[in-house]
């Protein structure tokens, strides 16, 4: 049995310790946010936060979560009470097919928690690992900028590692 903490709740799952976290999140915990896109860390659809750092859950052994906090897009808000980035994506209708969007929101969250007001270049570089095929990029950037302008996700006093 492996114990893991996702969005604040602790779960025990009976899986091979090398199983990628993505499959555990989707199948054992029935969370839809992280998506299977490539299984090779090339597209970012599966992005989740582990101890506040964005990781490709498709390449993250579930055993690596021991003692760490996993957060997925489900942990940022609900349809009734969306989180700041979720609300910004809704306000700007930053979705087409939407398959990449949860991963986008999660990766952006990591940046905005660490950097209060990132520059345009910082945002684009930070989002580089995540692919969108519908061409919703303009709106995704716009939504991230909007939250960046408020700085509301920034964790004051917390100085994240340089990247």
């Amino acid at each position: 049995m492996i114990e893991l903490t996702v969005n604040g709740a602790t779960h025990r799952v009976d899986v091979d310790p090398a199983t990628p976290l993505l499959y555990v999140l989707r199948n054992e915990l029935a969370l839809n946010g992280a998506k299977f896109g490539c299984g090779m860390g090339q597209c970012g659809a599966c992005t989740v936060l582990v101890d506040d750092r964005p990781v490709f859950s498709c390449l993250y052994p579930v055993s690596s979560t021991a003692g760490r906090r996993v957060r997925t897009v489900e942990g940022f808000g609900t349809p009734e009470k969306p989180g700041p980035l979720q609300q910004a994506f809704i306000d700007r209708q930053a979705v087409q097919c939407g398959y990449c969007i949860a991963g986008m929101i999660v990766r952006a969250q990591a940046l905005l928690e660490r950097v209060a007001h990132p520059t345009e270049q910082q945002i684009r570089e930070h989002m580089n690992p995540n692919l969108c095929r519908c061409g919703t990029h303009m709106r995704i950037l716009d939504a991230i900028r909007a939250v960046a302008a408020t700085g509301e996700l920034h964790r004051a006093g917390e100085k994240g590692p340089a990247s």
Binding site: N32, T72, F76, P79, P82, I90, V95, I101, A102
Partner: peptide
Amino acid sequence: DILAKVTGGAAY
């Protein structure tokens, strides 16, 4: 369809 897509609802 946007709420489910941004909050991890069943959408696909």
